[in-house]
Design a protein around this nucleic acid. Structure first.
Length: 461
RNA sequence: GUGUCCAUAGCUCAGUUGGUUAGAGCGCCAGAUUGUGGCUCUGGAGGUCGUGGGUUCGAAACCCAUUGGACACCCCA
């Protein structure tokens, strides 16, 4: 039989082959660069969020969420038309009325938009906000780089002072400490000056490289036009030599910026935060000015940034607000998790079961249902496989879920009004009166290990 | 956007210079053990060899395309 031939010939019966999912690995799979976050990794996210929230609240920050998409112009204007993010990494689409919208590639721009839109200049200053949100960038996936990723970040808007910069860095540093990776990271810090002096410097660099293009790589030629400061970062051998006699930013930075920077470094030293003063650190977003910083794992080749930030004093004005100074920080949770895993940091899981209820027979099942419910209400994490038959299977399941205790109720127990409590780690068990089961179980688990949910408690996810 | 490597069972991987019925370990299911998990033993299920095309008497293997993955560049979190 030549079924293959039939499939491939223009058989009139199958003219419209539904090839929606043709060529995919499994029939359906996630698009490139995005993935499911499975339970094992949820523990990491939960843990990081908990630490981040705690540290932020401690420092007076409040949480903000901006929409997943904004008008494209918000990002274009802020991040800079010529930057990689805007020129090739945005998920941009049109709505039904032809307006251009973009999935947020970062949050600072959106928060500044929100600052203006919601009149936050009338709030007590500085306005301190933090966020934990998914972001989207159309890039080739790589280690620690995905098309959807979570970012935690914070912004301090409305004041400018070296102590604020140091405080922002301290907060980031404390969070890395709590996460157990501070020792693996080193702060890189630089001051890239204010916009006017940076412009003058960029022009000076252009003048310098003009006529020397033949020594530049193709990449660096593009940089010469787009962002000459980046040439200083080049890995091209000829360029490195050329760079040695290039104009130095030191000679262009304003006195104010310089003393500002020195003051920031002093504060950091006082706070006991080690840093590398790195004058090649240039961030790729246009809105940065003055202080910029990143946290790098220097042991790993390259400059794998686990987080970074900087001052963006001109951004709010650029978006149509009154001139307002600000500083911010952001870290990618996926990169942080990777860093934690590399360094064998363990996170607690709140999902561990306390007790598994196994039952045998219809009568027993009837009793188990309210029992399970009561246990849960008392804060005991309880599971019951009410569908499964043999008690053997049920114990097996309990074992696989690593339940430390099991409650067994069969026909005998129903008749006698009792229940068996089995200690799964010791392998011992005892029979108790049905009316006492809940108390006995709680006694064994320990009151302080219980998991309470109080609907009246305002602090919930 | 550029480059390099990769794709075989749920997972980790074997599969000889192209050769007839594609294997192992772990995991899963069942039994040994009809009211007791873990350990052991026995058996079982599970594969369009990512997808499409080509070369060939014959393709998991060779070629092309495509989808996905890993890594580096670029850039960034």
């Amino acid at each position: 039989m030549s079924t293959d031939e039939q499939k491939n010939s223009n058989n009139p019966v199958t003219e419209e082959d539904d090839s929606e999912d043709a060529g995919l690995n499994p029939p359906f799979q996630t698009p490139k660069g995005v993935h499911d976050i499975l339970p094992v990794d949820q523990d990491f996210y939960t843990y990081i969020k908990k630490i981040v929230r705690h540290r932020c609240r401690q420092a007076g920050f409040r949480r903000i969420s901006t929409p997943i998409f904004e008008f494209t112009e918000v990002f274009k204007r802020s991040v800079g038309e010529a930057t990689d993010i805007v020129s090739k990494e945005m998920y941009t689409f049109e709505d039904k009325k032809g307006r251009s919208l973009t999935l947020k590639p970062e949050s600072t721009a959106a928060i500044c938009r929100s600052y203006i839109q919601n009149g936050m200049q009338n709030w007590p200053q500085p306005v301190e906000l933090y966020y934990i949100e998914p972001h989207f960038r159309y890039e080739r996936p790589q280690a620690g780089r995905y098309r959807q990723f979570f970012q935690f970040g914070f912004e301090v808007i409305g004041e400018s002072d070296p102590s604020l910069d140091a405080q922002a860095i301290l907060l980031a540093y404390r969070i890395y400490q709590d996460l157990g990776i501070a020792d693996t990271l080193r702060l890189q810090i630089n001051n890239i000056g204010d916009l006017p002096s940076r412009k003058i410097y960029a022009d000076a660099l252009r003048d310098y490289y003009y006529g020397k293009e033949r020594y530049l790589s193709e990449e660096d030629k593009v940089r010469l036009v787009k962002n000459p400061l980046r040439i200083l970062d080049s890995k091209n051998e000829d360029t490195i030599i050329l760079n040695q006699s290039a104009p130095k930013f030191k000679d262009f930075i304003s006195k104010e910026s310089q003393s500002y920077h020195e003051e920031v470094l002093e504060y950091l030293t006082d706070l006991g935060i080690n840093f590398t003063s790195n004058d090649t650190l240039v961030r790729g977003l246009d809105y940065y000015s003055q202080t910029v910083f990143e946290f790098w794992d220097e042991k790993r080749g390259g400059q794998n940034s686990v987080g970074g930030g900087g001052r963006y004093d001109g951004l709010i004005e650029l978006l149509g607000g009154v001139p307002t100074p600000a500083i911010g920080f952001a870290m990618g949770l996926e990169r942080v998790i990777a860093q934690m895993k590399r360094n064998k940091v363990r996170v607690p899981s709140k999902d561990d079961l306390h007790v598994f209820v196994a039952q045998l027979g219809r009568e027993a099942k009837k009793i188990c249902l309210p029992l399970i419910n009561e246990l849960r209400e008392r804060g005991v994490k309880t599971m019951g496989a009410l569908g499964k038959g043999a008690i053997k299977n049920q114990l097996k399941i309990a074992d696989r879920f690593k339940a430390p205790f099991c409650i067994l109720i069969g026909l005998t127990e129903v008749r006698e009004g009792t229940a068996i409590i089995r200690d799964m780690t010791l392998g011992t068990q005892s029979t108790v009166k049905m009316s006492r089961v809940v108390e006995e179980v709680i006694k064994r688990i320990g009151q302080k290990n219980l998991d309470f949910y109080n609907p009246k408690d305002p602090v919930n996810e």
